[in-house]
Each structure stands twice: as structure tokens, then as C-alpha cells.
Design a protein around this nucleic acid. Structure first.
Ligand SMILES: NC(=O)c1ccc[n+]([C@@H]2O[C@H](COP(=O)([O-])OP(=O)(O)OC[C@H]3O[C@@H](n4cnc5c(N)ncnc54)[C@H](O)[C@@H]3O)[C@@H](O)[C@H]2O)c1
Ligand SMILES: NC(=O)c1ccc[n+]([C@@H]2O[C@H](COP(=O)([O-])OP(=O)(O)OC[C@H]3O[C@@H](n4cnc5c(N)ncnc54)[C@H](O)[C@@H]3O)[C@@H](O)[C@H]2O)c1
Lengths: 223, 223
DNA sequence: GTCGGCTTGTGAAAGGATTCACAAATCAAG
DNA sequence: CTTGATTTGTGAATCCTTTCACAAGCCGAC
């Protein structure tokens, strides 16, 4: 069972367990059962145990899991026991909202640089990050050892942005633009599309002549 | 095959096909094959045909699908042949970015009202929407016949917000707060969690000693 | 120390989703 | 009209995920 064989579904759920575990740690809880983790992340106890068992045995039978220990284990599995340096391309409305999103830094994702093409925006600072000219992208990313990029440009610029990010050494990209973006196979790409999510709600509400929730496979809804 | 039996995976892909079809329409293309749709949305031709076949027969063998016709069919299936009225709760950084997101209106989602608790924000207008006091939520939503809600409050307020939205008649909710939110079974809930997506990238980049892309099941990456 | 109640870890079974593969249909060329 | 190149629609097969169910292990009570 190599890390490569772990499914996307499992990884999403590990993040959800982590979210629960952080809350439990804040609350001072020391031990947690698979049932509690399942309740806190919208899945089943068997699923929790199966997910964890892919990586090892972390619990005690009859007792459960140590919150602090499991939390550190999951952080380590997900590669969160370090800081990631992230570049943001596109300092528009969503880009600036992300610059002000303190959870990124708190969870280990430091926005090390931001870029835009708009002369009005270049040179301005937002939440401690100064917006640079797009031309400086490659140089800056190599100097700052950035490994992840966030695309927050208009859709028309998304593919070019992705290509340049990859060219500059980035191997993980989060894309907010609602267009298909191609990257080489060694680069990991995830997309967030707000309209697509709303369209999913539209379908559900249209189907429901009289209501009905729909399962969201692989990850609990509610995140 | 009732609409209720259609999987979340299929629905996400239908949205992606729609995205491709809109581009094709702009480009003036009249006919499209399952292969082209697959290429444009990161899936396979067989998957496209299987997805569409769940709802009917829309193509011509040996030829393909009429772009305009299929586009209208998919919009109708997804319930997008109407306008949806949406309420936004939390007019902070991400909330205001969403108010300025013109694609929402363009795709049929009108933000009919926005709410906040901060006296400094109440009464201000953003992109044509005036922020109201949270107290006015129930009354306004009923008056405006709002059916969907977007939660953009701090995590601590998310569950209360969801409860109030449901109480006010909303049956579809999009949650941006990184916490689990419970709603009654007749309400559909989707969550967007940026940190969770980045954590997924973190895992992929950590696994890859020497690169390797990872499949995103159910929907093509790149959105 | 052992009994009873719990909870994990995990093979096996069940349930879904995707891919395969091919008959049926369309169309253009001759 | 026939042939050949396409492309759809779909049952069957494959692949993957989730759920089941239970032996093994832990803990506190007595
Ligand atoms: N506003 C939202 O709430 C929201 C939500 C989800 C997704 N999105 C998507 O995010 C993207 C940005 O949306 P927005 O609302 O922030 O738009 P915006 O117009 O406010 O911002 C886009 C920014 O990108 C800059 N830009 C343009 N071309 C560029 C390039 N080649 N390189 C770098 N920067 C470039 C522009 O100067 C501008 O500052 C769009 O693709 C949009 O669909 C927006
Ligand atoms: N900033 C981002 O880019 C970003 C991205 C993804 C998710 N999020 C999430 O979105 C939520 C909002 O983030 P933000 O960065 O916009 O924070 P923010 O602090 O800028 O905005 C939150 C807003 O909610 C208001 N609010 C507080 N309690 C409320 C209540 N009970 N009802 C209505 N409004 C209330 C506040 O007055 C404030 O205006 C958070 O849960 C955050 O984790 C933010």
C-alpha cells in the first residue's frame, strides 16, 4: 500500500478528521473514538477506522485514539508538519480575500508572493503581502522556493498562469477560475468552482418536489 | 431511474459539460461529439455518453450532439432555466468578493440579500447589494422568496446561520466556513473548504518524491 | 484475576462508478 | 443504392469504495 494508492476520498476525509481533532484538542479532550470522529465529520465509524488503517494502527482497542497523537500523525501523513510556501496569481476580489484569510497561515500555508498585471495593483500591499508584476513571477518563485500556486485570475488567463507556475517549479496548483486547465502529469491540480457548487444545489432543489438531501460521496458535506 | 438516483458525480460532470458547451456556443460551434466534451471536461467519451443516457437520448449516432440543444437540455436538467434567489450571510472578505462575482448573476444566481452583525457593515452597499442586520433575515428571505443561502460567517456562527436559513425556508446551502454544519435531511448542503483543498495538495506533494498526478474521482480537476 | 462492556483493525461482502465493447444509426462519397 | 468512416446508446465487465461483522485487545469493576 503505497501513498500513491491512497484515494482522494480518503485524503479529504483525513482532512476532516484533522478538523475534528483540532477542535477536540482545543476542548481539552484526550481520547476520541472512531464513532466520535465519524460524527464530527459526517461519515461512519467503520470508514474512519478503514481510512486510518491504510496508514497504520493508531488506536487502542476498547479505548479509542489519543487526540494529540492522532492529530500529529495525520498532520505528518498529510505533509502538514512543515510550512508550505504558496504564490497567489491575481490580486482581484477573490485574490485579496485569500490574502486576508488568516487560516492559510495558521494551517501552514504561507502566501510568499502575489502577482497581478494591473499597474494600479502592482506595488500595493494587502495583509502584509506586496503585489508584484507578473514579469517577476519566475524569478521570485525560485528565490522564495515556492512549491504551490493559487490561480485567481480571470478565466482567460488561467491556462497561461498555470503554465508559468509549472515552469517556475510549482508542483501543486489550486485553481479558482472556472475553466479547464491542463498541467503535466507530475503536477497536482485542484479546482474550486463556486458556480458549479450552486448548480449542484439547483439540481437538488429542482429534483425535490418535496425535499430530500443527497449524499456527497467521499467527503461529508458541511465543510 | 428517478432524479433522486442520479449521483453527485454525474451532476458535477453535467456542470462541466455545460461549461464546455457554453464555450462552444460562444465559438459558434454547432455540433459536438462525446469525445470533444470529454476532452473539454477531463473525462472519457464513454462517461459523457453514460451520464447523458441517464436522462435520455440527445445525440445522433455518427454525428454527435447539437450544441445549442444539448446546452438547453442540460440547463433544464440542472434546473438552470430559471433564476435562483440567494441570500448571503456574512459580508466580510469572502462575502464581499462573492457580491462582486458577476458570474453568479450571469449563471442565474441572484444575490437578493446580504446580512451581517457588524454595525459598521450594516447599511453599506457592495455591487448593488445593501447589507442588512441579521435580525431582518427571516422576514427578508420570506419576502424575497429566497431558496438558497451562502454561509460566509466565521466558523463559530456557521451552525446558527444554517439553522436560521432553514428556518426562513431555505432548502439549499453553500457553506464556506470550515466546520461541520448539520441541516435537516430535506435541505441540501455543500461545502467549500480552501484549506482542505490545499491539504490535499500537501499530501500529493509529500507523496511525490518524484512527482505524480492523482486522479480526482467524479469530477475532472482543473475547475 | 476474571468478567462484561467497549472499541479497534480487518478480511469479506455489498454497493457504486467507470470502462469496455459492440450493435445500431447517421452521413458523405461515389 | 452501397460502402466506409463515424459516433451514439447501453448491457456487461471491471474497478473502486463503503459497509458489514467479528475476532482480538483494552479497561474498569468487583
Ligand atoms: N469573486 C469571487 O468571489 C470569485 C469566486 C470564485 C471564483 N472566482 C474566480 O476567480 C477569478 C478572479 O475573480 P475575481 O472576482 O477576483 O476577479 P477580479 O477581476 O476582481 O480579479 C482578477 C485579477 O486578476 C488580474 N489579472 C488579469 N490577468 C492577469 C494575469 N494574466 N496574471 C495575473 N493577474 C491577472 C486582474 O488585474 C485582477 O486584479 C475568476 O476566474 C473568477 O471566475 C471569483
Ligand atoms: N477570506 C477568505 O478568502 C476565505 C476563504 C474561504 C473560506 N473562508 C471562510 O469564510 C468565512 C468568512 O471569512 P472572511 O475571511 O470573510 O472573514 P471576515 O471576518 O472578513 O468576515 C466575516 C463576516 O461575518 C460577520 N459575522 C460574524 N458573525 C456573524 C453572524 N452571526 N451573522 C452574520 N454575519 C456575521 C462579521 O461581521 C464579518 O463581516 C470564514 O468561515 C472563513 O473561514 C474565508
Amino acid at each position: 500500500m503505497s501513498r500513491r494508492d491512497i484515494s482522494e476520498f480518503t485524503i479529504r476525509r483525513l482532512s476532516l478528521y484533522l478538523r475534528s481533532l483540532r477542535e477536540l484538542r482545543e476542548a481539552g479532550t484526550e481520547v476520541v473514538s472512531s464513532r466520535q470522529l465519524a460524527d464530527g465529520s459526517g461519515t461512519t465509524p467503520a470508514q474512519v477506522r478503514k481510512d486510518l488503517s491504510l496508514f497504520g494502527s493508531f488506536g487502542k482497542r476498547g479505548r479509542g485514539y489519543q487526540v494529540r497523537e492522532l492529530l500529529e500523525t495525520l498532520e505528518s501523513i498529510l505533509g502538514l508538519d512543515r510550512q508550505w510556501r504558496v504564490a497567489l496569481v491575481g490580486a482581484g476580489k477573490i485574490g485579496r480575500a485569500l490574502l486576508g484569510y488568516a487560516d492559510l497561515e495558521r494551517r501552514g500555508f504561507r502566501v510568499a508572493a502575489a502577482f497581478d498585471t494591473d499597474p494600479e495593483k502592482i506595488g500595493t500591499s494587502h495583509y502584509g503581502v506586496t503585489v508584484r508584476a507578473l514579469e517577476e513571477l519566475e524569478e521570485t518563485l525560485r528565490a522564495e522556493q515556492v512549491e504551490m500556486g493559487i490561480i485567481a485570475t480571470p478565466p482567460a488567463a488561467a491556462q497561461d498562469t498555470a503554465t508559468r507556475l509549472v515552469e517556475a517549479g510549482v508542483t501543486g496548483i489550486l485553481n479558482f477560475a472556472p475553466v479547464k486547465v491542463d498541467v503535466p502529469p507530475e503536477v497536482t491540480l485542484r479546482g474550486v468552482d463556486v458556480v458549479l457548487e450552486l448548480e449542484g444545489l439547483s439540481f437538488a432543489l429542482t429534483s425535490d418536489v418535496a425535499g430530500g438531501s443527497r449524499r456527497e460521496p467521499g467527503s461529508a458535506a458541511g465543510g
